[in-house]
Design a protein around this nucleic acid. Structure first.
Lengths: 145, 145
DNA sequence: CCTCAAAACTTGACTGAGTCAACTCTGGTG
DNA sequence: CACCAGAGTTGACTCAGTCAAGTTTTGAGG
């Protein structure tokens, strides 16, 4: 198996606290979670367990993001989504109708995978690509109507 | 000169109302405006003139966006930005530090300008690309500190 | 030019996502 | 095992945007 949440935190020199472990664990198997998804999922663990405060959640998410343990992504019209896949510079496909979201591998795998026509003097470190369209299911719905 | 705001509205079969004309006019020379920028700019016109309500503004922006007279763009961490450039599928460069935003032409000029490695059954109509980095000015600041 | 209904706009209450600030608790080092 | 900086809690607050119900305006037809 992979490293435990605690080991991951240690390997980045971060404190090994229950909320942080809970977030990392809660993200496994739920690749695109909003802050409130996480709040619900963590709060709902076996009764008696913590249930992290909103502020604590945002603090922890920020720390984990800065440490590159998780990645944050904000598609237009949606709250921020957090995911465990990092360092592979993958991109996203979003359905305009139902909002479903899919990961797409990057053709190069390292950021920035793409250069702009002109950089206007910027030092670019990432090219974020979002493809918009209709998912297979919504295409059927539209065609059938 | 270009078509007047009124003519543009007519050409799309939309009603020619003062607020809509005001929005189109206010966007000229202010390529990336938030809803509240627009509210301020329109409200501030010569006294006695309208000053559009918040709801009216959002309604009008939605109509104009649907009619392809303006385009809406939401970079992470910022409210929605509206711009007049449409139909050229251009992209954006954003400074991570100061938030400054630049337009970048698309190398093809038509959407979607780029195909994903795998489309997962989606019918894709747009590839939205955002480059993140540091603008020339912020690079100097960092280097100098 | 006048009328009228649909379309557009206004008002004001409300929501959701995230932030601020002040206080308390705890992990892990000495 | 005591300490304290870093982590978490609480609760008020902001900002961007939405909802719903009522009023005004636009422009097509008489």
């Amino acid at each position: 198996m992979e490293q435990s949440a605690g080991d991951l935190l240690k390997s980045k020199g971060l404190r090994n606290t229950a909320p942080r472990r809970a977030i990392l664990t809660a993200l496994q198997g739920h690749p695109h979670s909003t802050a409130s998804d996480l709040e619900r999922r963590i709060g709902a663990r076996k009764s008696g367990s913590s249930g992290l405060s909103k502020q604590g959640l945002y603090n922890a998410l920020e720390v984990l993001t800065n440490a590159q343990l998780i990645r944050c992504f904000e598609p237009a019209g949606s709250p921020a989504l957090y995911e465990l896949r990092v360092c592979d510079n993958h991109h996203h496909l979003v359905c305009r109708k139902c909002g479903v979201l899919e990961d797409v591998d990057c053709h190069t795998g390292v950021a920035p995978c793409l250069d702009p026509v002109e950089s206007k003097g910027f030092a670019i470190d990432e090219a974020e690509i979002t493809w918009w369209g209709l998912c297979a299911q919504c295409q059927e719905t539209v065609a059938g109507s």
